[in-house]
């Protein structure tokens, strides 16, 4: 007997593999989201039951995964035009768009509900705001309309540390706000360094990334203009007495090379993507930098407490 149809709901598409659903959540982006969320949770001046702490991080990861899935659902046409994203499940035709939409909405609703029921309403509200911010304000509204898209999108990536803190304490204090500002400002040099050497991909897809619409020179200047206040926000928690000396020393030691690399990019005149070594170094270091600064924050809290 074979009563069950062998095609997916949208009959033109194959039955998606579970790995395709996992790919929708952008697992590599999730690692940074989970890490900053965990650091926000661990840096909070309260202890939280390990099960509830795990649940908070799980909700942050599921919420970010849902936002990633909805982003891929909306941007399937763009992803198909860029080599970096053309093999994702939707542009590759391995999944029905409806499946991605239902998966994203379901996961978002579940993550917010679980956060509200298991932790607190403030954390759930910020999680919901971060999902809506990424999907509606960034993906749908501004990404295709402004060259400052990546700066605005950075706000979504800046939420997890604040959510982790709110999940642990039930409130939002100055330190998580500074962490939000740090990640928000970090996004500009991080993504513009990348955009400088893959700008042809963005140009082909019609995304108004800064190097595409304003040129290399302006992008190099702007990434440095964001790096300066980012450096200040990285050191501010120590300067304001919100952290100990361990964080202060680590933040300065890590931020100085970032500023130097950013200055090298600002002064570069290279236009051949293959020869853009300062840009590649800044992009690579920016990832290590964020992990290290947040790691130093947690180490400061736990070792000096």
């Amino acid at each position: 007997m074979n009563a069950i149809p062998l095609t997916s709901a949208a009959t033109a598409y194959p039955v998606a593999d579970w790995r395709d659903f996992l790919a929708l959540t952008k697992p590599r982006v999730l690692s940074l989201v989970v890490f900053t969320g965990l650091c926000g949770l661990l840096a909070a001046p309260v202890t939280i039951h390990p099960v509830l702490g795990f649940t908070a991080i799980l909700c942050i990861a599921l919420g970010a995964g849902a936002a990633g899935a909805l982003n891929q659902w909306y941007e399937a046409d763009l992803d198909a035009k860029m080599a970096r994203t053309a093999k994702r499940p939707l542009p590759a035709g391995r999944m029905a768009p409806e499946s991605a939409l239902h998966f994203g909405v379901g996961l978002a609703a579940f993550s917010v509900l679980l956060m509200g029921l298991a932790l607190n309403l403030l954390a759930a509200a910020i999680l919901l705001a971060s999902i809506l911010y990424y999907v509606v304000i960034y993906t749908v509204w501004l990404k295709r309309r402004t060259p400052q898209n990546i700066v605005i999108g950075g706000g979504a990536g800046a939420f997890p540390a604040m959510i982790g803190w709110a999940a642990a304490t039930g409130r939002v204090d100055m330190l998580p706000v500074l962490l939000f500002v740090l990640v928000f400002l970090w996004t500009a040099p991080h993504f513009w360094a990348l955009a400088l050497f893959i700008r042809m991909d963005y140009a082909a897809a019609g995304v108004p990334m800064l190097p595409v619409v304003a040129g290399l020179r302006m992008t190099r200047i702007q990434q440095f203009l964001y790096t300066v206040p980012m450096a200040a926000s990285a050191v501010a928690p120590w300067a304001l007495g919100l952290t100990g000396m361990l964080y202060g020393v680590a933040a300065i030691a890590l931020t100085v090379p970032f500023v130097v690399l950013s200055a090298q990019v600002a002064l570069s005149r290279e236009s051949d993507p293959a020869a853009m070594k300062p840009e590649r170094r800044l992009f690579a270091y920016s990832i290590v930098y964020l992990f290290a600064v947040f790691g130093a924050l947690v180490a400061d809290r736990w070792l000096l407490a």
């Binding site: 062998l6 095609t7 039955v15 593999d17 579970w18």
Partner: peptide, 16 residues
């Protein structure tokens, strides 16, 4: 192709 679809459905059901 039919076996492949069944395999995917089984894997998804197991994952769920």
């Amino acid at each position: 192709p039919e076996e492949d679809i069944r395999r995917r459905q089984r894997n998804r059901a197991a994952a769920m």
